[in-house]
Design a protein around this nucleic acid. Sequence first.
DNA 1: GTCTATATAGAGATAGAC
DNA 2: GTCTATCTCTATATAGAC
Lengths: 192, 192
Amino acid sequence: MKSTNTRSQILDTAQELIQRRGANAMSYADISEKVGIRKASIHYYFPSKEDLIINLLDRYNEQFCQLVDQIMASSESSATKLNRYSSLFVATLSSGDQDKACLCGILSAELKTLNPTVVDRITQFYRDNENYIEEILNSGIKSGEFSFAGTPRTMAKLIFSLLEGDLLVARAEGGVSRIQATIEQMMALIKS
Amino acid sequence: MKSTNTRSQILDTAQELIQRRGANAMSYADISEKVGIRKASIHYYFPSKEDLIINLLDRYNEQFCQLVDQIMASSESSATKLNRYSSLFVATLSSGDQDKACLCGILSAELKTLNPTVVDRITQFYRDNENYIEEILNSGIKSGEFSFAGTPRTMAKLIFSLLEGDLLVARAEGGVSRIQATIEQMMALIKS
DNA sequence: GTCTATATAGAGATAGAC
DNA sequence: GTCTATCTCTATATAGAC
């Protein structure tokens, strides 16, 4: 899974650092140390920190959507799909030292320190994910698996906010088992 | 509502800045400018940034618990209590330029850059709030207002994560009306 | 209590050699 | 492409005058 070329290694390292500590606590010096190159070399690939973060988000959105598309394309039940989708968030916290949150969740907290170009990418990530969830909910209602008050659209937004929030809260209290319990509870609320 | 003494003004300003931009993007220079004193004067009240944040959190937790205690002490229905509790989160985003999130929600994202003394306060805030919500859910079940799958404890954690997450997400997409819709949807899920 | 002045460290970024 | 060297700015923090 480790990248071989320098550019990808920089992105990998930056992403991990932001998911742990946030964009404002991540520096070129940190990346430099972990990748084993000098700060100036990073500027060769990404002239400004803004460039770096934009490229990071574009890659992240693409990778994430690819994973979700695989789930959507499967012939499993809607409940299984929603469970597998939610597991992507569990996987983020489970990996490494169990201290990473969603990249876009972290950046949400720092939103007002980011420029519009970056904010656009974050908003796009939200929209994409809410659309995916809504699609799963709709097919689950049609198949008779799901039943709940309100619209699938509002419920999709609720589920997305829940997963993002729980991932952040779980780092301070409860860890992986907390987010697993939260997902189980959420599934119970919408099942027929 | 504006504080008169310097110490409180510093705390007010620091809190607002953190709720907007995060702790790592908040500086003594920012506070200095807004309060109208020199950076060195802030160090007189709070020798280190850590001191400042700890005092901030202690005050915040106390103020927040006081507001919730008022709600808990009222003779209203459980549904009304939960609605009023949730409205505290709406109020945060509604105030000022509609760009503030929960203090502890913001700090959750920066959690791994904070020292244990600060993390303790954040965890305490979570625990207190989850206990309050659980209490409301229990009384609502007893009165026949609420009915849902799973335990009140797990449901309380879900609701807390949801409110924290939605407050962060809403700043990028949906604003005040989003969080209002989310709360309405959440209430619909637990009503009998 | 608040100020000026300063110390020290770190940030993002650029120039130019190799 | 990667390096050394350096610039500029900002950060937290302290000393000491008033």
